[in-house]
């Protein structure tokens, strides 16, 4: 059934947005982290996603039906590369010689916007999925008594 392609496309979009939410939550959780996994400061991360190679191809079983295969995929999760936020806290164990502590350069407002955008995009994927499902169920109603 060619509706499975629509489901797979929506599913790939949901996977990407889910990862975006995970990464944004990780950034928010580490807003006050002074030590990262490698001992250095935590670097804010961002998800780079791209379109999966979309192509129309003819089904093997039905020559007249065209199918669209593709979707979205995560290309990479990379560090944003913003300068750390320096706060003067001489008593902090991670303070440098001048008494400054390097907090990650995370902007909570930007992170919240990314979070909301990811959530809305996820919802849009669910809406597209539900539309495909409704269409399939409507097709099954063809010739019915209702």
């Amino acid at each position: 059934m060619d509706y499975m392609a629509a489901f797979a496309i929506s599913g790939s979009g949901m996977s990407v947005e889910k990862l975006r939410l995970d990464v944004t939550a990780l950034n928010i959780a580490n807003v006050h982290s002074t030590r990262g996994p490698e001992g250095t400061g935590y670097e804010p991360l961002q998800v780079i996603s791209g379109a999966r190679q979309a192509q129309l191809f003819r089904s093997v079983f039905a020559a007249e039906s065209l199918r669209l295969a593709g979707g979205a995929e995560v290309l990479e999760v990379r560090t944003v590369g913003v300068a750390p936020r320096l706060v003067y806290e001489p008593n902090h164990p991670d303070a440098d010689a001048a008494g400054f502590v390097a907090y990650p350069g995370i902007n909570p407002v930007n992170e919240m916007v990314t979070l909301l955008a990811a959530m809305r995009a996820y919802e849009a994927n669910v809406a597209a999925f539900n539309a495909a499902k409704t269409m399939a169920l409507k097709a099954l109603e063809l010739g019915g008594n209702g």
């Binding site: 059934m1 509706y3 489901f7 996977s15 399939a136 099954l140």
Partner: peptide, 26 residues
Amino acid sequence: DNLHHVMIALEEAKLSFQLMVQVRNK
């Protein structure tokens, strides 16, 4: 790892089954 993959699998199964039921009805 992903909740939506489970839901998609469930929906696919439901849709396939309903198609089969309709074919049987016809």
